[in-house]
Amino acid sequence: MACAQVHDYLQTQGLKLSADQVQMAMLAAQSVLTLAQAEIDMSVIWYQENGFSLAEKLSVNTASLHQLQPTELFTANNNSTYTLRQMYLALDSIASRHHNEIFALYLYEPDEITGHLYRLLSRGGSLPAQIYCGQQQVQQYLFVRTATTGWLNQVNNVQHWLSDGSLTGEQAAHSQLAIPVTNAQGQVLGVLYAAHMQPNSISETELIDWTALAIVIPPLLQNLHQAIETSIKR
């Protein structure tokens, strides 16, 4: 199943990566997600910014914000704090290996027009907490373009993209990578974003690691989406 899943994702995204290496990277990502232990300031996860509260968005009771009860990540959906912490550790692990100055994970909510992105986790840079995915935002933010198209986007030299009009506006970094996190039906659940301040800094090994994480975490984003949907129905 994992092998078929990898081949399907690589083919869909037009990625000429070694499926075996991606599978090995997936195992490493899963190990971090399930086993990693580290202290994290909860304000990093449960941030409030420009009137946006992640806890409110995920309908998490403020009394349970600091509860870190170990759980089975890929089946349980009632411990958002633990889930977000483990995902942060997985992102941080990859970013540390590849010296990414910036990384982020966004949750995508489509609507009848286009949709919104909500920042779940991040480090470095000044990325928006929530963003409407309109045409202007598609032109400025690589992760918005990935959310709305479902396609992986890689920028090796942002100045070239600005020069030819492929991107507009202020940019966070010179090398950028935005990878869609999709469900089995190909619907976008979220976007992984990683960046370097210097151009031409994204290696094939880094692309493999971020791609592997994108293939591993859909169940975790589905759980967070479910938490939001459950709250709306109440």
Rank of each mutant, 00 (worst) to 15 (best):
C3Q: 11
V6D: 09
V6T: 15
D8W: 04
L10Y: 02
L10R: 03
L10A: 02
Q11C: 13
Q13E: 10
L15E: 09
M24L: 12
L27H: 13
A28M: 11
L33Q: 00
T34G: 11
Q37W: 05
D41Y: 10
M42L: 14
S43I: 06
I45M: 08
Y47R: 08
E49F: 12
N50R: 09
N50L: 08
N50V: 03
G51N: 04
F52N: 06
S53Q: 05
E56H: 07
E56G: 06
K57R: 07
L58N: 10
N61S: 11
L65Q: 04
Q67P: 05
Q69D: 07
T71V: 14
E72W: 10
L73Q: 08
F74T: 01
T75V: 14
T75M: 14
N78S: 15
N79H: 11
T81F: 12
T81A: 15
L84D: 00
L84E: 00
Q86K: 13
Y88S: 10
L89H: 08
A90G: 04
D92K: 13
S93G: 05
A95Y: 04
H99I: 07
E101G: 12
E101V: 05
L105G: 02
L107R: 01
E109W: 09
P110Y: 06
H116T: 08
H116A: 07
L117P: 00
Y118D: 04
G124I: 01
P128V: 00
A129S: 14
C133F: 06
T149N: 08
W151S: 12
W151M: 11
W151Q: 15
L152T: 00
Q154W: 09
N156G: 10
N157Q: 06
W161E: 12
L162E: 01
S163E: 12
D164A: 02
S166E: 10
S166Y: 07
T168P: 03
T168G: 08
G169T: 02
E170K: 06
E170N: 05
Q171S: 03
A173K: 03
H174W: 09
S175E: 00
L177F: 13
I179E: 04
N183E: 03
N183I: 00
A184T: 04
Q187E: 11
Q187F: 10
V188F: 10
L189N: 02
L189Y: 03
G190K: 02
G190P: 01
L192P: 01
Y193A: 00
Y193C: 05
Q198L: 13
P199Y: 01
N200A: 11
E204W: 07
T205W: 08
T205F: 07
L207D: 04
D209W: 05
W210N: 06
W210E: 05
T211S: 12
L213G: 09
L213S: 04
I215S: 05
L221E: 05
L224K: 03
L224E: 01
Q226F: 15
A227R: 15
I228D: 14
T230S: 14
T230V: 10
I232Q: 15
K233A: 12
